[in-house]
Amino acid sequence: EITKEQQALMKVIVDAYNKHQIPQDVTKKLLQEQYSVEENFLLLTEMATNQVQVLVEFTKTIPGFLSLDHEDQIALLKGSAVEAMFLRSAQVFSTKMPNGHTEVLEERIRKSGMSEEFMTPMFNFYKSIGSLHMVQEEQALLTAITILTPDRPYVKDQQAVERLQEPMLDVLRKLCVLQHPKKPQYFAQLLGRLTELRTLNHYHAEMLTSWRMN
């Protein structure tokens, strides 16, 4: 059973997640006419900057986050930004969009100069997230849990971060049982995706280097 306090926590997270999204005028640009590889690169990097700003705004609303040590706040955001961005992007590929928009986006990313060896695991991740059919609450909580990972580099007070992450994990676990009563492994599967995310994060620096070189 989800307690009233847990419901309130979930509402704060979901409302913030929905409120802080990339502005539509930016996302619309992705669906416009043909671009060159260079323009795709510029557009995607502009979106990445936007995504980080949106991510920070979302994170500020996580109860207790702003009371953490300021440098720890930065360490958490720095350590999780890439993973949170992949999670958010995965949502685009797991939602049915009109008029083949998903295909247009995939094509644009594939033609942005990034190496195939990095592209394949990324799209595989998007598909594996898509196959889970997460509800909005799960998506928002999973993002918050990713950000509040205590063992990111340079985090000094890991226990303080754990104290914020644990209630989120507890709500998510309960939500999974309620939402997917026939899938007892669902919560474990969600956490498994976080491990996959860490792998993507690990290769991200190499990915960027190859992208710049190309």
Partner: peptide
């Protein structure tokens, strides 16, 4: 690219509520 600023700089500015510097 062009006006490349690092991830940390974007985060610090966003935490202070400064977006368009």
């Amino acid at each position: 690219p062009g006006n490349s600023i690092g991830l940390e700089a974007i985060i610090r500015k966003a935490l202070m509520g400064k977006y368009h510097d």
